[in-house]
Amino acid sequence: MKNESIKIFQKKKAAILEKWLTLQLEEDGLREDLMSNADLRIQSEELLSSLIDNLSDSNIDQPQSSDFETVIEILSSISISRAKQGYTPRETGSFIYSLKEALLKTLSEEMKDPAALYKQSMTINKTMDSFAIATFETFIKGREEVILRQTDEITEISTPVIQVWDGIVALPIIGTLDSARTQVVMENLLQAIVETESRIAILDISGVPAVDSLVAQHLIKTVSATRLMGAECIISGIRPEIAQTVVHLGIDLSHIITKSTLESALKTSFAMLNLDVTKKQKPKTQHTIN
């Protein structure tokens, strides 16, 4: 015998959809700014049809069943797209929970026997909850994707290479220098050296909170790579506490040119390029090169 609730759902599909939509529209979280009612109706209808079409006696209490793959797929794509559009978890969650409510309401209207109604409701409840969990999972995954993309963007913008003078590029590093970041720093720095035909690269680490042996290793690697390109690399912005830790950790930076400030690094660079930067005597302060 076919499960009674399935029969009811199939018969009352249109009514359920209306109920569901009404419930969704009542919800405070309805985001008309993000999605029109027409789109909402299309989404809802698609999900409901796929759910009811795939429900059967054998799977009604088996939300993990492969019969529901399409349902899960539709749910996933809806919640991922919602996550990216900036819906809150509540708004996304109420989408699936209001469907549950609509289904249960329909059941209670159609079924007369309280015991059977209770049993069916419990089953539907369980299955729909499982779908809700899947929705949340994908919603969070969607959010994670957003975060991941932003992390990429941050890494991209946090390594600005500046050409400070003809033949000199500088790269201020702000934040922790891990190996992934070092890769980006090296790539950008070396690329800039090629593009600007620079002879000197200044790596300013004033903004790096701490230098441990791993960070130091990354710095040394960057210097070595710069040298392989045929440019010299100066590390500036060595704060006293950094100098202390470096020495205490026994890190050897002696074969690297290090300066305490960007200013002195720049001075050294000028000297290396045989540039003389002087203050003009009369009109106003201005830098000139001889």
Partner: peptide, 10 residues
């Protein structure tokens, strides 16, 4: 030397 080659060598 290409940048990618330099980084790889290091």
């Amino acid at each position: 030397m290409q940048p990618a080659v330099a980084i790889t060598l290091v």
